[in-house]
Design a protein around this nucleic acid. Sequence first.
RNA 1: CGGGACGUGGCGCAGCCUGGCAGCGCACCUGCUUUGGGAGCAGGGGGUCGCGAGUUCAAAUCUCGCCGUCCCGACCA
Length: 543
Amino acid sequence: MGRRSDGGPASGIGLSDWWAGSSDSTNPPPPVRSNGAPTRSSSTPRCVVAPSNRGADTSSRSSSTAPVRSPPMAKAPILTPRAEDFPRWYQDVLNKAQLAESGPVRGTMVIRPYAYAIWERMVEEVDRRIKAAGAENAYFPLFIPQSYLTREAEHVEGFSPELAVVTVAGGKELDEPVVVRPTSETVIGEYMAKWIQSYRDLPLLLNQWANVVRWELRPRTFLRTTEFLWQEGHCAHATEADGHAYAARILHDVYRDFMVEVLGIPVLIGVKPPEERFAGATNTMACEAMMGDGKALQMGTSHELGQNFATAFDITYQDESGEQQLCWTTSWGVSTRMMGGLIMAHGDDRGLRVPPRLAALQVVVLVVKDDDGTVTEAARRLHDELAGAGVRARIDDRVGTPFGRRATDWELKGVPLRIEVGPRDLADGMVTLVRRDSAEKSVVGLDEVVGTVPALLEVIQSALHDEALALRESRTVECATVEEAAAAATEGFARVPWAMLDPAALERLGRDALTVRCVQTPDGGLPERLDDADNVAVVARAY
RNA sequence: CGGGACGUGGCGCAGCCUGGCAGCGCACCUGCUUUGGGAGCAGGGGGUCGCGAGUUCAAAUCUCGCCGUCCCGACCA
């Protein structure tokens, strides 16, 4: 939840060969809108929401024999190569893999079914961990009285520029404007105050899955959108130590565990410097990941709110000795921004690569061609067998569509493993397995597939993780001076002594759009105090 | 808010300067041939040219106004 906190025939032509050759023509960018987003002219708005204030390898059946050549007239790349223009590549992936597009209102997005299925998998996995950590799901309203926001000074100040405020509803001016929630500390605080009477009611561990709205000036699909989906946990604890421990536990056991084990994205954990704290928090901890271009993305945050909200909303309890005490609250969240992280951390020049544990679709069984129905039938049996073994699989038997088109499409979508079933393979009782992460192919007996696939998926899972980790390590530099850090952070992460970063140093870094992403202990742990002498700051460019 | 661009079938664009039947690529539909890496050929459907006024025999094209979008900056993370 942090404010703003929150991826032919010529049988020997490798995809990389296609690109090597020429072609200037990069695929057109996707700016989506064209003419007329219909302007609604209906005169009586029932509800007005206004922003406040400011307004193949492949191919080759065996790669070893693939002749290396770059065809003179290579086809245009499907995607803008990552190295050429990373943001454009990102947009191309969103479009070509049919992940998302922008909505009619600036900053909004439409999440298409394939991407939404991935999001649902994220929700499943995160939700399970949240419940394991003891929190319970609940739901609080989208609309919040504006007066609630104003009760916590820093909170309002932080959020007011991005609020969408409803001033007219039901055909009338409202007596008190209502804000569309940018986060729910305030409403939930109000109810926590009602529900908590004694120390026996603590800790109160709540979570909700919801959408929130923060009016953004520079939206980017998934990374920063005006409306996004997330999970926000809100807890009340008896002591500061309990709150701290729980916020840290969420960061470790829910977020980092999910990101590393399921998303396959290595993340740094650390404490945010004061300027990057959530509005109203006394401490903000975060998971930071490195994207394919070396920039940092904050993937999740966990906050200690001290007694700020407890004071503002009168969240108190009676302790064992009968005294009234103020609670210590925490809040934590991860959002659809993780979809952006997934794309940018794992995507390659062929498109998305979804790690198998996350994938809503792990295996696509592709019928290469079929003249008499036997191939499709064999593919179906294989599919059913895989599904029976718990593999999330689907069949692609659209034999009317050329093989290459279908193969390319599934690669764009990043399905971890493709099983090609064709007449040639089948004649030998074999099928071809093609890994999305490495493009490696292997030929396996029909009856061995089910025994092979689950383990292979795990191999792919760790290969993706390891690749992301290797990238991060290769682009992380230990620095002893601010100038060194400024140079290193342009390409990746610079680790510098936190004690060295006085205001002048931060100012210097800021000139190159570099910020402190988090502060860690020397071995990468969560520091107990921000100002411990040997703390290390991770400096980078950030999304 | 300052600066700069751009609005033409679903998407990407040409046409505008020099007014005269609204075009191209992709996508889509039909048929045939194809199918082990982005199919080919033939045929076909789809557009009040952002909106409104003006000039003109005639406006996508010229003029004025408005709206919208994008980029850079600012702001914000």
